[in-house]
Amino acid sequence: MSQASYTLIEGNLPLLISMPHNGTDIADHIKHTMTDVAHKVEDTDWYLDRLYDFAKHLGAYILMPKYSRYVIDLNRDPTGVSLYPGADTTELCPTTSFKSEPLYKDGQQPTEDEITRRINDYWQPYHQAIADTLATMRHQFGKAVMLEAHSIASVVPRFFDGQLPDFNFGNNQGQSCAKSMLESIEQLDFSPYSQVSNGRFKGGYITRHYADPKNNVHTLQLELSQRTYLDEATLAYDQQKADEVKPKLEMLVKQLIVFAQQS
């Protein structure tokens, strides 16, 4: 099902994979206010649709936006409240890249009215799709599980020191899913890749906002290091790397399906 701002692939079991930073488009009326840096959309969670293409055949629901996070960050609180108070972070409508480069030409940053318009045009439809899909799964199966699928450059000095682990899981310090769900993931063999839970990434707005474990809605974020499947210098998809990491992602998704289908 394709809408103006997102695509929802409908599944047949209670797992939704949301990819809120997978989009790359920028509408022309926004693009002309932006810098050449912004036009490159370098901070995209690149190629997640290719990495998780197996999930469609497993029966998962898959939700992907059309537009770039530079237009509006679908994983931010629409009120602008920070997920990590006191830490450096990008805004609901980002004005700088992860390298702190300006995304807008001088004097052309989005106004409050423009931000409101983007919430209505881009943010709200995506979140309505999440809410509706989780409600459908709960009604049909009695349970709903959502994997928030993300990826990020392995080194981003603006946000963290050193190099990230490869698999960064977050469940808001245990609050967004059943303890047994995360434990079953942590017991999987992700070697030779490194992994951590609730390290630098504890789960973003979507993971936190839709979680309701007491009512059988469980959410988990995975921030995958892009060094596991990209040539990070060129942002090109590395087929060999991808072929090596995809079985680990499929193992993860299959484990979430097992949990989702448990009574």
Rank of each mutant, 00 (worst) to 15 (best):
Q109C: 13
D88E: 13
T89M: 11
E186W: 00
Q109R: 14
N171Y: 03
S184A: 11
I130V: 10
V156T: 10
I119W: 02
G142F: 09
G162I: 03
I185K: 00
P157L: 00
T95F: 09
G107F: 11
H139W: 04
D106I: 15
F160M: 07
V145E: 01
G174T: 09
E112L: 15
F160I: 06
E112G: 07
A144N: 08
Q108T: 15
K105V: 10
R117Y: 04
G170W: 01
G107W: 12
N171W: 02
Q124R: 10
L134V: 05
Q109S: 14
Y126T: 09
Q140G: 03
E114K: 15
I115W: 06
G162K: 00
L164M: 15
D113T: 15
R158Q: 02
G107I: 13
V156P: 01
L103M: 12
I115S: 08
K143Y: 07
K179I: 07
E91L: 14
F159I: 03
F159H: 02
Q124G: 03
E114N: 10
H127Q: 07
T111P: 08
F169H: 00
F141A: 06
Q108K: 14
T116I: 13
T111L: 10
Q173P: 03
D132G: 04
Y104D: 02
A131N: 11
R138Q: 13
G107C: 14
T111C: 08
F98N: 13
A144W: 05
D88V: 14
H150D: 02
N120C: 12
L103H: 04
Q109F: 12
A178P: 07
E91A: 14
P125Y: 06
T133Y: 11
E186Y: 00
R118Q: 09
E183D: 13
Q109D: 13
M181S: 05
G174F: 12
S151M: 11
A178I: 06
R138T: 12
W123A: 01
Y104M: 10
G162V: 00
Q108H: 12
A135T: 11
L92K: 04
T95H: 11
M181H: 04
E114I: 15
F167L: 02
S180K: 06
D113G: 15
G174I: 11
H150F: 05
R158K: 03
F98G: 10
D132R: 09
K99I: 07
S176Y: 00
A131Q: 13
